[in-house]
């Protein structure tokens, strides 16, 4: 469960102060499927980054599963990211020199899992994401849809409680985009909280709960 209380994030641009998040209060229950929509600069990506512990709010309180995570040290936050949160980016963020299997392996390496167990997990995951025949291809040799599937596989291999996606279909054509959305929704059906940030109305409307943002505030929150 994600609870945000009066979360504020301020950026300085020259002498201008921008409230990317302006006293946001938001509660997202486990297993929800939420889309966050809004124009660029509305603060939707900043909200996702704060939820994913990639960014620190200037003020406010963030409880993740009842625990205040804003006060955690850098190392503890890294552990929370590793165990509870999976991140999917618009530009995939795969490491270009590593193969698909090796990219998926990184989170497992970080937890210190022994190689034999890792191999097994990777084989399972590649199979589940229909990447079996792409295991030893580098990102440059994969299609956009395949890259995003690798990124999602990497984000979910440690079975996080929340999957955060920032414009997951932004770099994909319509058909592949729907496939990726369907894949994320399938993961949501297994119990993973899914939060998707997008300015694509069609993708946003697929979510059960739709949040619209403007100027750092929540404009509407429809169930």
């Amino acid at each position: 469960m994600i609870q945000l209380q009066a979360i504020t994030r301020i950026f300085h641009m020259g002498d201008q102060v921008i409230h990317a998040l302006d006293h946001i209060d938001l509660t997202i229950d486990s297993g929800e499927y939420v889309s966050i929509m809004g124009a660029s600069g509305s603060g939707k990506s900043t909200l996702l980054n704060v939820i994913g512990l990639l960014d620190r709010p200037n003020s406010g309180q963030y409880l993740l599963d009842g625990k205040d995570v804003t006060a955690l040290s850098e190392t503890e936050q890294a552990q929370v990211r590793r165990e509870k949160i999976g991140f999917v980016f618009q530009s995939f963020h795969l490491i270009p020199r590593l193969t698909a299997a090796e990219n998926i392996e990184i989170p497992l390496i970080l937890t210190g899992m022994p190689p034999a167990e890792r191999k097994e997990r990777i084989a399972e995951t590649l199979q589940a994401f229909n990447l079996g025949d792409r295991a030893h291809h580098r990102p440059a040799e994969l299609s956009g849809g395949q890259r995003q599937r690798v990124a999602i596989a990497r984000a979910t291999i440690l079975r996080p409680t929340a999957l955060l996606a920032d414009e997951p279909t932004g770099n994909l054509d319509h058909r592949i985009g729907s496939e990726v959305a369907a894949l994320l929704e399938a993961l949501n059906r297994t119990g993973t909280t899914l939060i998707v940030v997008t300015h694509d109305r069609e993708l946003g409307l697929r979510a059960r709960r739709r949040i619209a943002m403007r100027d750092g505030r929540i404009e509407s929150d429809e169930q």
């Binding site: 994913g52 990639l54 850098e74 190392t75 890294a78 552990q79 990211r81 590793r82 165990e83 949160i85 991140f87 963020h93 490491i95 990184i106 989170p107 970080l110 990497r154 984000a155």
Partner: peptide, 16 residues
């Protein structure tokens, strides 16, 4: 730097 950011995003602490 972007790669460092990614590693952090998927849970690598600064020490790693």
């Amino acid at each position: 730097t972007a790669e460092i950011g990614l590693l952090k995003a998927i849970g690598a602490p600064a020490a790693v």
